[in-house]
């Protein structure tokens, strides 16, 4: 119990971020008209592509003689980039049509 409380105190900034982000995520999406559900899902999909940062760090830290780490990191960077770039481009394509029609 003591150690658990200690852990919570030690990592309180993370816990705050997590809790606040959960509420924010719910709040932000709660007012979305159903018209925008597909673009929104696609946009959120692109945002979790932020995992690419982890892939870049893994790749950058890899020992150049460790081929397994290099290979895995390289694949991770490619897949992460696909998620980010593909996600944002697809979302933009969808939204472009919405805007076009509003004129």
């Amino acid at each position: 119990m003591e150690t658990l409380l200690e852990k919570i105190a030690l990592h309180q900034d993370y816990i705050y971020i997590v809790v606040l982000m959960i509420f924010l995520g719910i709040e932000v999406i709660g007012r979305v008209p159903s018209v925008l559900h597909t673009p929104l899902m696609s946009g959120a999909n692109a945002i979790h592509g932020v995992v690419i940062i982890g892939a870049i760090i893994v790749m950058g830290k890899a020992d150049p003689s460790n081929y397994l780490a290099l290979g895995l990191g390289f694949l991770a960077v490619i897949l992460g980039t696909l998620n980010v770039v593909g996600g944002f481009v697809v979302t933009d394509r969808m939204l472009e049509m919405f805007r076009h029609k509003q004129k």
């Binding site: 971020i17 509420f23 979790h48 932020v50 982890g54």
Partner: peptide, 30 residues
């Protein structure tokens, strides 16, 4: 989103953490 947030904990990276949790929460509500 939650998996990306795990990376945020691992690297003490707040951008990964906020982005991941935000999508995790919003996606669940959606």
């Amino acid at each position: 989103g939650v998996a990306a947030a795990c990376g945020g904990f691992l690297y003490n990276n707040k951008a990964m953490l906020t982005g991941g949790i935000l999508v995790g929460a919003a996606g669940t509500l959606l």
